[in-house]
Write a protein that binds this DNA or RNA. Structure first.
Lengths: 129, 129, 129, 129
DNA sequence: GTGGTCTAGACCACC
DNA sequence: GTGGTCTAGACCACG
Protein backbone atom coordinates (compact mmCIF):
# COMPACT_ATOMS: atom_id res chain seq x y z
CA UNK A 1 0.00 0.00 0.00
CA UNK A 2 1.62 3.23 -1.16
CA UNK A 3 0.68 6.42 0.58
CA UNK A 4 2.11 9.85 -0.09
CA UNK A 5 2.76 11.70 3.13
CA UNK A 6 3.56 15.36 3.20
CA UNK A 7 4.68 16.33 6.70
CA UNK A 8 4.23 20.05 6.12
CA UNK A 9 1.01 20.66 4.23
CA UNK A 10 -1.03 21.67 7.24
CA UNK A 11 -2.91 18.37 7.45
CA UNK A 12 -1.91 16.21 10.38
CA UNK A 13 0.12 13.20 9.30
CA UNK A 14 -2.15 10.75 11.08
CA UNK A 15 -5.07 12.34 9.25
CA UNK A 16 -3.37 11.99 5.89
CA UNK A 17 -2.94 8.29 6.63
CA UNK A 18 -6.59 7.97 7.62
CA UNK A 19 -7.82 9.71 4.49
CA UNK A 20 -5.58 7.85 2.12
CA UNK A 21 -6.44 4.46 3.56
CA UNK A 22 -10.14 5.29 3.26
CA UNK A 23 -9.51 6.45 -0.28
CA UNK A 24 -7.67 3.23 -1.11
CA UNK A 25 -10.59 1.23 0.28
CA UNK A 26 -13.14 3.28 -1.66
CA UNK A 27 -11.16 2.72 -4.86
CA UNK A 28 -10.90 -1.00 -4.23
CA UNK A 29 -7.10 -0.83 -4.04
CA UNK A 30 -7.41 -2.82 -0.83
CA UNK A 31 -10.35 -5.14 -0.31
CA UNK A 32 -12.30 -6.34 2.73
CA UNK A 33 -10.37 -9.12 4.40
CA UNK A 34 -7.00 -7.78 3.26
CA UNK A 35 -4.55 -7.13 6.05
CA UNK A 36 -3.09 -3.64 6.12
CA UNK A 37 0.64 -3.34 6.80
CA UNK A 38 1.51 -3.57 10.49
CA UNK A 39 1.95 -0.39 12.47
CA UNK A 40 5.69 -0.86 12.50
CA UNK A 41 5.97 -1.73 8.82
CA UNK A 42 3.84 1.17 7.69
CA UNK A 43 5.87 3.46 9.92
CA UNK A 44 9.04 2.20 8.28
CA UNK A 45 7.58 2.65 4.79
CA UNK A 46 6.43 6.19 5.42
CA UNK A 47 9.43 7.12 7.56
CA UNK A 48 7.22 8.37 10.37
CA UNK A 49 6.79 7.40 14.00
CA UNK A 50 4.91 4.15 14.74
CA UNK A 51 2.75 6.01 17.23
CA UNK A 52 1.51 8.24 14.45
CA UNK A 53 0.51 5.22 12.38
CA UNK A 54 -1.07 3.65 15.44
CA UNK A 55 -3.15 6.74 15.94
CA UNK A 56 -4.33 6.63 12.36
CA UNK A 57 -5.20 2.93 12.63
CA UNK A 58 -7.11 3.53 15.85
CA UNK A 59 -9.09 6.22 14.10
CA UNK A 60 -9.79 3.84 11.25
CA UNK A 61 -10.96 1.19 13.70
CA UNK A 62 -13.22 3.69 15.44
CA UNK A 63 -14.63 4.57 12.01
CA UNK A 64 -15.31 0.91 11.31
CA UNK A 65 -12.93 0.71 8.36
CA UNK A 66 -10.41 -1.64 9.99
CA UNK A 67 -10.92 -4.55 12.34
CA UNK A 68 -8.43 -6.30 14.54
CA UNK A 69 -7.63 -9.95 13.96
CA UNK A 70 -5.88 -11.07 17.07
CA UNK A 71 -2.21 -11.77 16.56
CA UNK A 72 -2.51 -11.17 12.83
CA UNK A 73 -2.92 -7.45 12.57
CA UNK A 74 -5.66 -5.27 11.16
CA UNK A 75 -7.84 -6.11 8.18
CA UNK A 76 -10.29 -4.12 6.11
CA UNK A 77 -13.80 -4.53 7.51
CA UNK A 78 -16.43 -6.33 5.42
CA UNK A 79 -18.64 -3.29 4.81
CA UNK A 80 -15.84 -0.74 4.68
CA UNK A 81 -16.06 -0.19 0.94
CA UNK A 82 -19.64 1.01 0.93
CA UNK A 83 -18.97 3.17 3.94
CA UNK A 84 -15.84 4.78 2.52
CA UNK A 85 -17.49 5.43 -0.82
CA UNK A 86 -20.49 7.00 0.87
CA UNK A 87 -18.31 9.09 3.15
CA UNK A 88 -16.26 10.29 0.22
CA UNK A 89 -19.39 11.12 -1.76
CA UNK A 90 -20.82 13.10 1.13
CA UNK A 91 -17.56 14.96 1.69
CA UNK A 92 -17.41 15.99 -1.94
CA UNK A 93 -21.02 17.17 -2.05
CA UNK A 94 -20.45 19.20 1.10
CA UNK A 95 -17.29 20.76 -0.29
CA UNK A 96 -19.02 21.77 -3.50
CA UNK A 97 -22.08 23.08 -1.74
CA UNK A 98 -19.96 25.06 0.71
CA UNK A 99 -17.97 26.63 -2.10
CA UNK A 100 -21.17 27.55 -3.93
CA UNK A 101 -22.78 29.02 -0.82
CA UNK A 102 -19.74 31.20 -0.19
CA UNK A 103 -19.78 32.30 -3.79
CA UNK A 104 -23.43 33.27 -3.50
CA UNK A 105 -22.83 35.20 -0.28
CA UNK A 106 -20.12 37.01 -2.13
CA UNK A 107 -22.74 38.45 -4.42
CA UNK A 108 -22.47 36.25 -7.50
CA UNK A 109 -25.61 35.42 -9.39
CA UNK A 110 -26.54 31.90 -10.37
CA UNK A 111 -25.60 32.32 -14.01
CA UNK A 112 -22.23 33.97 -13.45
CA UNK A 113 -21.45 31.19 -11.01
CA UNK A 114 -22.59 28.56 -13.45
CA UNK A 115 -20.16 29.93 -16.03
CA UNK A 116 -17.26 29.93 -13.55
CA UNK A 117 -18.02 26.36 -12.53
CA UNK A 118 -18.25 25.23 -16.11
CA UNK A 119 -14.91 26.84 -16.93
CA UNK A 120 -13.24 25.12 -13.99
CA UNK A 121 -14.91 21.82 -14.83
CA UNK A 122 -13.62 21.70 -18.38
CA UNK A 123 -10.22 22.91 -17.23
CA UNK A 124 -9.97 20.26 -14.54
CA UNK A 125 -11.04 17.44 -16.84
CA UNK A 126 -8.77 18.58 -19.65
CA UNK A 127 -5.51 19.18 -17.76
CA UNK A 128 -5.73 16.37 -15.29
CA UNK A 129 -5.20 17.80 -11.84
CA UNK B 1 -19.10 47.61 11.55
CA UNK B 2 -20.85 44.45 12.69
CA UNK B 3 -19.00 41.18 12.52
CA UNK B 4 -20.23 37.78 13.63
CA UNK B 5 -17.56 35.89 15.53
CA UNK B 6 -17.88 32.21 16.33
CA UNK B 7 -15.14 31.02 18.71
CA UNK B 8 -15.94 27.35 18.15
CA UNK B 9 -16.18 26.84 14.42
CA UNK B 10 -12.60 25.81 13.81
CA UNK B 11 -11.57 29.02 12.06
CA UNK B 12 -9.12 31.18 13.96
CA UNK B 13 -10.86 34.23 15.37
CA UNK B 14 -8.32 36.67 13.95
CA UNK B 15 -8.92 35.08 10.57
CA UNK B 16 -12.66 35.49 10.88
CA UNK B 17 -12.08 39.18 11.54
CA UNK B 18 -9.75 39.49 8.55
CA UNK B 19 -12.19 37.77 6.22
CA UNK B 20 -15.21 39.70 7.34
CA UNK B 21 -13.47 43.07 7.11
CA UNK B 22 -12.36 42.23 3.58
CA UNK B 23 -15.86 41.09 2.79
CA UNK B 24 -17.31 44.35 4.14
CA UNK B 25 -14.88 46.30 1.98
CA UNK B 26 -15.70 44.24 -1.09
CA UNK B 27 -19.43 44.83 -0.53
CA UNK B 28 -18.91 48.54 -0.06
CA UNK B 29 -20.18 48.42 3.51
CA UNK B 30 -17.08 50.41 4.46
CA UNK B 31 -15.44 52.70 1.92
CA UNK B 32 -11.86 53.85 1.28
CA UNK B 33 -11.00 56.62 3.69
CA UNK B 34 -13.36 55.33 6.41
CA UNK B 35 -11.68 54.72 9.74
CA UNK B 36 -12.16 51.26 11.22
CA UNK B 37 -12.94 51.00 14.95
CA UNK B 38 -9.90 51.09 17.21
CA UNK B 39 -8.46 47.80 18.40
CA UNK B 40 -9.90 48.32 21.87
CA UNK B 41 -13.34 49.31 20.63
CA UNK B 42 -13.57 46.45 18.18
CA UNK B 43 -12.43 44.04 20.88
CA UNK B 44 -15.17 45.33 23.18
CA UNK B 45 -17.80 45.04 20.43
CA UNK B 46 -16.88 41.48 19.59
CA UNK B 47 -16.10 40.44 23.17
CA UNK B 48 -12.75 39.05 22.16
CA UNK B 49 -9.16 39.68 23.19
CA UNK B 50 -7.63 42.96 21.95
CA UNK B 51 -4.54 41.03 20.95
CA UNK B 52 -6.69 39.08 18.54
CA UNK B 53 -8.05 42.23 16.92
CA UNK B 54 -4.55 43.69 16.74
CA UNK B 55 -3.36 40.59 14.96
CA UNK B 56 -6.20 40.81 12.46
CA UNK B 57 -5.46 44.50 11.80
CA UNK B 58 -1.78 43.71 11.26
CA UNK B 59 -2.77 41.09 8.73
CA UNK B 60 -5.07 43.57 7.01
CA UNK B 61 -2.29 46.17 6.86
CA UNK B 62 0.10 43.58 5.45
CA UNK B 63 -2.55 42.76 2.85
CA UNK B 64 -2.84 46.44 1.95
CA UNK B 65 -6.49 46.68 2.97
CA UNK B 66 -5.91 49.04 5.89
CA UNK B 67 -3.47 51.91 6.21
CA UNK B 68 -2.29 53.75 9.26
CA UNK B 69 -3.19 57.43 9.58
CA UNK B 70 -0.93 58.89 12.22
CA UNK B 71 -2.84 59.92 15.27
CA UNK B 72 -6.15 58.82 13.79
CA UNK B 73 -6.02 55.09 13.58
CA UNK B 74 -6.50 52.79 10.62
CA UNK B 75 -8.48 53.59 7.49
CA UNK B 76 -9.50 51.59 4.47
CA UNK B 77 -6.88 51.95 1.74
CA UNK B 78 -7.79 53.72 -1.50
CA UNK B 79 -7.51 50.69 -3.73
CA UNK B 80 -8.76 48.19 -1.18
CA UNK B 81 -12.11 47.66 -2.83
CA UNK B 82 -10.76 46.40 -6.12
CA UNK B 83 -8.25 44.25 -4.30
CA UNK B 84 -10.77 42.71 -1.94
CA UNK B 85 -13.19 42.00 -4.74
CA UNK B 86 -10.44 40.37 -6.80
CA UNK B 87 -9.18 38.40 -3.82
CA UNK B 88 -12.65 37.20 -3.04
CA UNK B 89 -13.17 36.20 -6.67
CA UNK B 90 -9.90 34.33 -6.69
CA UNK B 91 -10.65 32.61 -3.40
CA UNK B 92 -13.98 31.44 -4.70
CA UNK B 93 -12.53 30.14 -7.95
CA UNK B 94 -9.86 28.29 -6.00
CA UNK B 95 -12.40 26.77 -3.67
CA UNK B 96 -14.51 25.55 -6.53
CA UNK B 97 -11.57 24.26 -8.48
CA UNK B 98 -10.19 22.47 -5.44
CA UNK B 99 -13.52 20.82 -4.75
CA UNK B 100 -13.78 19.70 -8.37
CA UNK B 101 -10.23 18.37 -8.44
CA UNK B 102 -10.86 16.32 -5.32
CA UNK B 103 -14.06 15.02 -6.80
CA UNK B 104 -12.23 13.99 -9.94
CA UNK B 105 -9.52 12.24 -7.95
CA UNK B 106 -12.28 10.40 -6.19
CA UNK B 107 -13.17 8.78 -9.48
CA UNK B 108 -16.17 10.82 -10.60
CA UNK B 109 -16.59 11.49 -14.28
CA UNK B 110 -17.20 14.94 -15.70
CA UNK B 111 -20.87 14.37 -16.39
CA UNK B 112 -21.72 12.84 -13.02
CA UNK B 113 -19.95 15.75 -11.42
CA UNK B 114 -21.76 18.26 -13.60
CA UNK B 115 -25.06 16.82 -12.41
CA UNK B 116 -24.06 17.03 -8.76
CA UNK B 117 -22.92 20.61 -9.16
CA UNK B 118 -26.10 21.59 -10.96
CA UNK B 119 -28.19 20.02 -8.22
CA UNK B 120 -26.32 21.93 -5.53
CA UNK B 121 -26.46 25.13 -7.55
CA UNK B 122 -30.22 25.12 -7.91
CA UNK B 123 -30.59 24.06 -4.29
CA UNK B 124 -28.35 26.86 -3.05
CA UNK B 125 -30.05 29.52 -5.14
CA UNK B 126 -33.52 28.34 -4.22
CA UNK B 127 -33.18 27.90 -0.45
CA UNK B 128 -30.91 30.77 0.31
CA UNK B 129 -27.97 29.48 2.38
CA UNK C 1 -13.72 18.13 39.20
CA UNK C 2 -12.49 15.16 41.21
CA UNK C 3 -11.73 11.94 39.41
CA UNK C 4 -10.36 8.77 40.91
CA UNK C 5 -7.76 7.22 38.70
CA UNK C 6 -6.46 3.74 39.24
CA UNK C 7 -3.44 3.16 37.01
CA UNK C 8 -3.51 -0.60 37.43
CA UNK C 9 -7.06 -1.83 37.21
CA UNK C 10 -6.89 -2.99 33.64
CA UNK C 11 -8.88 -0.05 32.28
CA UNK C 12 -6.79 2.41 30.30
CA UNK C 13 -6.24 5.65 32.18
CA UNK C 14 -7.51 7.79 29.33
CA UNK C 15 -10.63 5.67 29.31
CA UNK C 16 -11.15 6.12 33.02
CA UNK C 17 -11.01 9.85 32.46
CA UNK C 18 -13.48 9.64 29.59
CA UNK C 19 -15.94 7.55 31.59
CA UNK C 20 -15.74 9.64 34.72
CA UNK C 21 -16.19 12.91 32.88
CA UNK C 22 -19.24 11.48 31.12
CA UNK C 23 -20.48 10.25 34.47
CA UNK C 24 -19.98 13.69 36.02
CA UNK C 25 -21.91 15.25 33.16
CA UNK C 26 -24.71 12.72 33.46
CA UNK C 27 -24.96 13.42 37.21
CA UNK C 28 -25.03 17.15 36.65
CA UNK C 29 -21.78 17.62 38.59
CA UNK C 30 -20.60 19.71 35.64
CA UNK C 31 -23.09 21.54 33.47
CA UNK C 32 -23.20 22.55 29.80
CA UNK C 33 -21.14 25.69 29.33
CA UNK C 34 -18.80 24.87 32.22
CA UNK C 35 -15.15 24.76 31.29
CA UNK C 36 -13.36 21.58 32.21
CA UNK C 37 -9.89 21.91 33.74
CA UNK C 38 -7.18 22.47 31.15
CA UNK C 39 -5.20 19.51 29.92
CA UNK C 40 -2.21 20.57 31.95
CA UNK C 41 -4.16 21.30 35.11
CA UNK C 42 -6.06 18.03 34.99
CA UNK C 43 -2.79 16.21 34.40
CA UNK C 44 -1.33 17.87 37.48
CA UNK C 45 -4.40 17.00 39.58
CA UNK C 46 -4.39 13.36 38.57
CA UNK C 47 -0.60 13.05 38.51
CA UNK C 48 -0.64 11.62 35.01
CA UNK C 49 0.86 12.69 31.70
CA UNK C 50 -0.77 15.64 29.90
CA UNK C 51 -0.85 13.59 26.72
CA UNK C 52 -3.06 11.05 28.42
CA UNK C 53 -5.51 13.74 29.46
CA UNK C 54 -5.36 15.21 25.96
CA UNK C 55 -6.28 11.84 24.52
CA UNK C 56 -9.26 11.57 26.84
CA UNK C 57 -10.40 15.10 25.97
CA UNK C 58 -10.08 14.35 22.26
CA UNK C 59 -12.24 11.29 22.73
CA UNK C 60 -14.78 13.39 24.60
CA UNK C 61 -14.80 15.93 21.80
CA UNK C 62 -15.28 13.19 19.22
CA UNK C 63 -18.18 11.92 21.34
CA UNK C 64 -19.73 15.38 21.34
CA UNK C 65 -19.44 15.80 25.12
CA UNK C 66 -16.88 18.62 25.04
CA UNK C 67 -16.46 21.53 22.66
CA UNK C 68 -13.49 23.75 22.12
CA UNK C 69 -13.75 27.45 22.84
CA UNK C 70 -10.76 28.98 21.15
CA UNK C 71 -8.18 30.24 23.58
CA UNK C 72 -10.39 29.42 26.56
CA UNK C 73 -10.27 25.67 26.71
CA UNK C 74 -12.94 23.01 26.51
CA UNK C 75 -16.49 23.33 27.72
CA UNK C 76 -19.32 20.87 28.21
CA UNK C 77 -21.50 20.78 25.08
CA UNK C 78 -25.10 22.00 25.30
CA UNK C 79 -26.72 18.63 24.74
CA UNK C 80 -24.09 16.56 26.50
CA UNK C 81 -26.26 15.79 29.53
CA UNK C 82 -28.98 14.00 27.62
CA UNK C 83 -26.42 12.13 25.59
CA UNK C 84 -24.36 11.00 28.58
CA UNK C 85 -27.43 9.91 30.49
CA UNK C 86 -28.69 7.93 27.52
CA UNK C 87 -25.32 6.36 26.92
CA UNK C 88 -25.03 5.36 30.56
CA UNK C 89 -28.54 3.92 30.55
CA UNK C 90 -27.84 1.88 27.46
CA UNK C 91 -24.54 0.58 28.86
CA UNK C 92 -26.24 -0.57 32.03
CA UNK C 93 -29.07 -2.32 30.24
CA UNK C 94 -26.60 -4.09 28.00
CA UNK C 95 -24.49 -5.20 30.94
CA UNK C 96 -27.48 -6.62 32.75
CA UNK C 97 -28.85 -8.31 29.66
CA UNK C 98 -25.47 -9.83 28.85
CA UNK C 99 -25.12 -11.20 32.37
CA UNK C 100 -28.59 -12.70 32.21
CA UNK C 101 -28.00 -14.25 28.80
CA UNK C 102 -24.84 -15.91 30.02
CA UNK C 103 -26.66 -17.17 33.05
CA UNK C 104 -29.36 -18.66 30.88
CA UNK C 105 -26.82 -20.33 28.59
CA UNK C 106 -25.30 -21.78 31.69
CA UNK C 107 -28.50 -23.73 32.25
CA UNK C 108 -30.27 -21.65 34.89
CA UNK C 109 -34.02 -21.38 34.73
CA UNK C 110 -35.84 -18.10 34.90
CA UNK C 111 -36.99 -18.55 38.46
CA UNK C 112 -33.64 -19.62 39.89
CA UNK C 113 -32.11 -16.64 38.16
CA UNK C 114 -34.80 -14.33 39.48
CA UNK C 115 -33.94 -15.44 43.00
CA UNK C 116 -30.23 -14.88 42.50
CA UNK C 117 -30.82 -11.43 41.08
CA UNK C 118 -33.16 -10.52 43.91
CA UNK C 119 -30.59 -11.64 46.46
CA UNK C 120 -27.88 -9.55 44.84
CA UNK C 121 -30.21 -6.59 44.49
CA UNK C 122 -31.08 -6.44 48.16
CA UNK C 123 -27.47 -7.05 49.10
CA UNK C 124 -26.20 -4.27 46.86
CA UNK C 125 -28.77 -1.78 48.07
CA UNK C 126 -28.24 -2.68 51.71
CA UNK C 127 -24.44 -2.67 51.92
CA UNK C 128 -23.69 0.21 49.65
CA UNK C 129 -21.18 -0.96 47.09
CA UNK D 1 -15.51 -31.23 21.01
CA UNK D 2 -16.78 -28.25 19.00
CA UNK D 3 -15.79 -24.81 20.11
CA UNK D 4 -16.66 -21.52 18.44
CA UNK D 5 -13.67 -19.21 18.28
CA UNK D 6 -14.00 -15.58 17.34
CA UNK D 7 -10.62 -13.90 16.86
CA UNK D 8 -12.10 -10.42 16.76
CA UNK D 9 -14.41 -10.14 19.75
CA UNK D 10 -11.92 -8.67 22.17
CA UNK D 11 -11.59 -11.82 24.29
CA UNK D 12 -8.21 -13.52 24.05
CA UNK D 13 -8.46 -16.69 22.01
CA UNK D 14 -6.79 -18.88 24.63
CA UNK D 15 -9.33 -17.57 27.12
CA UNK D 16 -12.21 -18.45 24.83
CA UNK D 17 -10.86 -21.99 24.68
CA UNK D 18 -10.51 -22.17 28.46
CA UNK D 19 -14.03 -20.91 29.06
CA UNK D 20 -15.66 -23.14 26.50
CA UNK D 21 -13.89 -26.26 27.72
CA UNK D 22 -15.01 -25.49 31.26
CA UNK D 23 -18.50 -24.85 29.98
CA UNK D 24 -18.52 -28.18 28.14
CA UNK D 25 -17.42 -29.91 31.33
CA UNK D 26 -20.05 -28.15 33.41
CA UNK D 27 -22.74 -29.17 30.92
CA UNK D 28 -21.57 -32.76 30.87
CA UNK D 29 -20.70 -32.61 27.18
CA UNK D 30 -17.37 -34.10 28.11
CA UNK D 31 -17.08 -36.30 31.20
CA UNK D 32 -14.29 -37.03 33.71
CA UNK D 33 -11.92 -39.55 32.20
CA UNK D 34 -12.56 -38.42 28.62
CA UNK D 35 -9.47 -37.40 26.71
CA UNK D 36 -9.50 -33.96 25.16
CA UNK D 37 -8.14 -33.59 21.61
CA UNK D 38 -4.38 -33.16 21.38
CA UNK D 39 -2.96 -29.66 21.11
CA UNK D 40 -2.22 -30.17 17.43
CA UNK D 41 -5.60 -31.65 16.60
CA UNK D 42 -7.51 -28.99 18.48
CA UNK D 43 -5.42 -26.32 16.78
CA UNK D 44 -6.26 -27.80 13.39
CA UNK D 45 -9.97 -28.01 14.24
CA UNK D 46 -10.15 -24.41 15.38
CA UNK D 47 -7.71 -23.08 12.79
CA UNK D 48 -5.67 -21.32 15.44
CA UNK D 49 -2.06 -21.42 16.54
CA UNK D 50 -1.03 -24.58 18.49
CA UNK D 51 0.75 -22.32 20.98
CA UNK D 52 -2.60 -20.78 21.78
CA UNK D 53 -4.18 -24.18 22.45
CA UNK D 54 -1.20 -25.19 24.55
CA UNK D 55 -1.59 -22.08 26.62
CA UNK D 56 -5.27 -22.80 27.17
CA UNK D 57 -4.53 -26.40 28.19
CA UNK D 58 -1.87 -25.20 30.63
CA UNK D 59 -4.41 -22.88 32.17
CA UNK D 60 -6.93 -25.71 32.40
CA UNK D 61 -4.37 -27.96 34.08
CA UNK D 62 -3.48 -25.20 36.52
CA UNK D 63 -7.21 -24.86 37.26
CA UNK D 64 -7.48 -28.59 37.92
CA UNK D 65 -9.89 -29.21 35.08
CA UNK D 66 -7.50 -31.30 32.99
CA UNK D 67 -4.94 -33.85 34.09
CA UNK D 68 -2.06 -35.35 32.23
CA UNK D 69 -2.15 -39.09 31.52
CA UNK D 70 1.33 -40.19 30.58
CA UNK D 71 1.50 -41.26 26.98
CA UNK D 72 -2.18 -40.63 26.41
CA UNK D 73 -2.65 -36.88 26.60
CA UNK D 74 -4.95 -34.84 28.78
CA UNK D 75 -8.15 -36.05 30.34
CA UNK D 76 -10.91 -34.34 32.27
CA UNK D 77 -10.18 -34.53 35.99
CA UNK D 78 -12.48 -36.57 38.26
CA UNK D 79 -13.85 -33.64 40.22
CA UNK D 80 -13.82 -31.16 37.35
CA UNK D 81 -17.59 -31.17 36.90
CA UNK D 82 -18.41 -29.91 40.36
CA UNK D 83 -15.63 -27.37 40.14
CA UNK D 84 -16.65 -26.04 36.75
CA UNK D 85 -20.27 -25.78 37.76
CA UNK D 86 -19.32 -23.92 40.93
CA UNK D 87 -16.95 -21.65 39.08
CA UNK D 88 -19.56 -20.90 36.49
CA UNK D 89 -22.13 -20.17 39.20
CA UNK D 90 -19.72 -17.84 40.95
CA UNK D 91 -18.83 -16.07 37.70
CA UNK D 92 -22.47 -15.48 36.95
CA UNK D 93 -23.24 -14.15 40.39
CA UNK D 94 -20.27 -11.80 40.14
CA UNK D 95 -21.32 -10.59 36.72
CA UNK D 96 -24.81 -9.86 37.93
CA UNK D 97 -23.64 -8.20 41.09
CA UNK D 98 -21.14 -6.11 39.20
CA UNK D 99 -23.76 -4.94 36.73
CA UNK D 100 -26.10 -4.05 39.58
CA UNK D 101 -23.42 -2.18 41.51
CA UNK D 102 -22.58 -0.10 38.45
CA UNK D 103 -26.22 0.61 37.89
CA UNK D 104 -26.56 1.77 41.48
CA UNK D 105 -23.51 4.01 41.19
CA UNK D 106 -25.13 5.47 38.14
CA UNK D 107 -27.90 6.80 40.34
CA UNK D 108 -30.65 4.24 39.77
CA UNK D 109 -32.90 3.35 42.67
CA UNK D 110 -33.62 -0.22 43.68
CA UNK D 111 -37.11 -0.24 42.24
CA UNK D 112 -36.23 1.29 38.89
CA UNK D 113 -33.44 -1.22 38.64
CA UNK D 114 -35.74 -4.07 39.59
CA UNK D 115 -38.04 -3.12 36.73
CA UNK D 116 -35.20 -2.98 34.21
CA UNK D 117 -33.93 -6.36 35.33
CA UNK D 118 -37.38 -7.88 35.17
CA UNK D 119 -37.88 -6.54 31.65
CA UNK D 120 -34.57 -8.00 30.49
CA UNK D 121 -35.29 -11.29 32.26
CA UNK D 122 -38.59 -11.88 30.53
CA UNK D 123 -37.11 -10.72 27.23
CA UNK D 124 -34.14 -13.08 27.53
CA UNK D 125 -36.26 -16.07 28.45
CA UNK D 126 -38.79 -15.39 25.75
CA UNK D 127 -36.49 -14.73 22.76
CA UNK D 128 -33.80 -17.22 23.47
CA UNK D 129 -30.48 -15.37 23.31
C1' DG E 1 -2.12 30.71 28.93
C1' DT E 2 -4.85 27.13 25.67
C1' DG E 3 -5.11 22.58 22.77
C1' DG E 4 -2.85 19.81 18.67
C1' DT E 5 0.70 17.17 16.93
C1' DC E 6 4.86 14.53 16.52
C1' DT E 7 8.83 11.91 18.14
C1' DA E 8 11.24 8.64 21.03
C1' DG E 9 11.38 4.98 23.96
C1' DA E 10 9.34 1.86 27.05
C1' DC E 11 6.17 -1.87 28.86
C1' DC E 12 2.20 -4.91 28.34
C1' DA E 13 -0.89 -8.83 26.61
C1' DC E 14 -1.57 -11.77 23.00
C1' DC E 15 -0.46 -15.01 18.97
C1' DG F 1 5.67 -11.06 15.55
C1' DT F 2 1.05 -8.11 16.53
C1' DG F 3 -1.51 -3.78 18.53
C1' DG F 4 -2.41 -0.89 23.04
C1' DT F 5 -0.90 2.20 26.33
C1' DC F 6 1.83 5.44 28.88
C1' DT F 7 5.58 8.73 29.62
C1' DA F 8 8.63 12.44 28.43
C1' DG F 9 9.80 16.23 25.92
C1' DA F 10 9.41 19.15 22.05
C1' DC F 11 7.25 22.45 18.66
C1' DC F 12 3.26 24.77 16.69
C1' DA F 13 -0.86 28.04 16.20
C1' DC F 14 -3.91 30.70 18.74
C1' DG F 15 -5.68 34.15 22.39
Amino acid sequence: MFLNINPSNGIAIYDQVVRQVKFAVAQGAVKPGNLVPSVREMARELAINPNTVARAYQQLQADGVLEQVRGMGLEVAPDAVKQCKGERQKLIQDRIRQALVEAKQSGLEGDELRQIVEKQLTSVFRNGS
